[in-house]
Amino acid sequence: MTAILEARGLTKAYGSVRVLEDVDFDLQDGEAHVVIGPNGAGKTTLFRCLSGETRINGGTIRFAGEDVSGLTGAQRVKRGIGRTFQVARIFPSMSAFENLIVAIETRERTHQGLRFTFGYIAPRRAVVAEAERLVTELGLEDTVDDVAGTLSHGDKKRLELAMCLALKPRLLMLDEPTAGMSPSDRAEAVRLITRVRDSYGLSLLLTEHDMEVVFGLATRLTVLHHGEIIASGQPEAVRADPRVREVYLGQH
């Protein structure tokens, strides 16, 4: 395996508060890498830095061999990094189906020039067909015509996942994919994520609090504490690490 995402000496501070301190982070091609840590450990900040939502103060980020440190989030998406948010971000006034249409059309826009701006009065058949495929794949059939803002929490998350898959990413970053879900929904979400990971051949980067989800998905586990990585490796090995038990797992 080769590293698809490599971060070296990652440093991020908000004002005088240093959230990430000289973090080295690797993500191998094809792995499902879960980052855990107590609240305030810097998980979300690490996520934001890697996805390009915020600028880093120091260090480099390489994706598939290319230095992406200076690129915006949108530019990183074009290179194959998709991401979801802790609270699902969708287009609330559009129908769920239109959300998907927008995602697919946005991926395709660069090949179309002016036709993209004036050319069609309806989405192209290929786009609609692709959206329908995604609906079936993610099990969104019942809610596809509903206004996205009225969907349940779990359905919003599934819709957001579908939108990210429409971008055909190589690496998908999921920020707490099961936050706020019931235990049965969580198990369902783990199955769904495993399924799309296999069928799309994705590398995954996740943050998560629920230990069942963590150990259900992770092929590699990293523990973040006060902006530093204190353990990283096979999930079982990390679970046995005494320092990890002390700062994080022990609390549960």
Binding site: A74, V77, G82, R83, R89, S93, R109, E160, M163, L167
Partner: peptide, 16 residues
């Protein structure tokens, strides 16, 4: 329209 409804999401669909 999408940008108006959630600009961060549209940025992470890969658009300016």
């Amino acid at each position: 329209q999408a940008i108006r409804q959630d600009n961060l999401r549209t940025a992470f669909l890969g658009t300016s």
